[in-house]
């Protein structure tokens, strides 16, 4: 009971702290840390003021070549990280293939985690100098913005709304939203699921997108996508909708599930950072640029997502 009270306090505090942030979906009537927070509210969308038009894929241009590992320019945020001795990565622990806990070893691993490890390697010369902090989906923007983590790599879509609060790196992965249903389902796409209960993580763009679907499915919020799969397996929801990559990780764990339909959104993933340190964003972009060119990106893709076919060409970086 005491914990519950504490949670309410933190949730409230977080909500207040985020009041100024436009990037989070905090005004949603969901309390992800609370038990059985099944928000059957008709999902949001439409009633929010449109964010200023922008190209969410365009990030800050890298400044020259990368400094050698262990020798970060004085006064830069990279030097602060170097001095601290570790890079703090904010991510989730239940998104198979991107960032999930390996039940055998207890380690958190995946495509997103490797992105973080590559940044750590560029700073320290050692990919293991990384501290993983698990954050809620609805805390991704605020965690990056308040500096409680250095970078957020957590299947996070770069969009104009979030650009108002954080800096994004160049895009490192192109995903799109689909829907996962039971194998026996006759639905062909999300448009056939009107009135059905569809789960997504609170605070994710996917959750908002469900509300924009014309067929009007009922959006159900859970604290994390893993909780959505639990709800799906316990027949609390008829489907889960989010990025195809995350859904692929879920389908891999449940032989009675399938992913259907075309992508009905574009979700360019990028790394989020504190807006106060543009030099750090430029540095991260330089690392990504180098890794696209030298084949590291492709190796990472093959390692985690190789089962879905050969690696495509990495998303082309766009700069302002």
């Amino acid at each position: 009971m005491r914990v519950r009270a504490a949670l309410v306090v933190t949730v409230l505090a977080a909500t207040t702290a985020l009041a100024g942030c436009s990037g989070d979906t905090s005004p949603l009537p969901v309390t992800p840390d609370r038990p059985r927070a099944i928000a059957t509210t008709p999902a949001p969308g439409g009633d929010k003021p449109a964010p200023p038009a922008c190209n969410p894929r365009a990030s800050l241009r890298p400044a020259g070549s990368l400094p050698p590992p262990g020798e970060m320019p004085a006064g830069s945020y990279m030097a602060t990280i170097l001095q601290r001795g570790r890079l703090v990565l904010g991510t989730s622990q239940d998104t198979l293939l991107f960032s999930s806990r390996n039940p055998f070893s207890g380690e958190i691993e995946g495509f997103d985690v490797d992105m973080g490890r590559q940044i750590a390697e560029a700073i320290f010369g050692d990919p293991d100098k990384i501290q993983i902090k698990v954050i809620g989906y609805d805390k991704r923007v605020s965690s990056a913005a308040d500096g409680s983590v250095d970078i957020v790599a957590d299947t996070m879509t770069a969009n104009c709304e979030r650009w108002a609060d954080v800096n994004f790196s160049s895009v490192y992965y192109e995903a799109g939203q689909k829907v996962l249903v039971a194998k026996a389902s006759k639905a062909k796409s999300i448009n056939d699921l009107g009135g059905k209960r569809i789960c997504s993580a609170a605070g994710s763009t996917s959750f908002e997108n469900i509300g924009k679907v014309k067929a009007k499915p009922v959006a159900v919020a859970k604290p994390a996508f893993g909780d959505c799969l639990v709800a799906f397996q316990r027949n609390e929801v008829e489907g889960i909708s989010t990025d195809d990559t995350i859904l692929a990780g879920m389908a891999a764990q449940d032989p009675y599930a399938k992913v259907i339909g075309p992508r009905f959104t574009e979700e360019p993933y990028a790394i989020a950072m504190d807006k106060k340190h543009p030099e750090f964003a430029r540095f991260v972009n330089a690392v990504l640029e180098r890794n696209r060119a030298n084949g590291t990106w492709k190796r990472t893709y093959d390692k985690w997502l190789g089962d879905f076919g050969p690696a495509p060409t990495p998303p082309k970086a766009q700069y302002r």
Partner: peptide, 20 residues
């Protein structure tokens, strides 16, 4: 079976235990 969903089941169980 090495499926990460196990940890989600565990947190669901823990929520049930602690909150109900």
């Amino acid at each position: 079976q090495g499926l990460p969903i196990g940890s989600s089941y565990l947190s669901e169980a823990s929520r049930l235990n602690r909150d109900t």
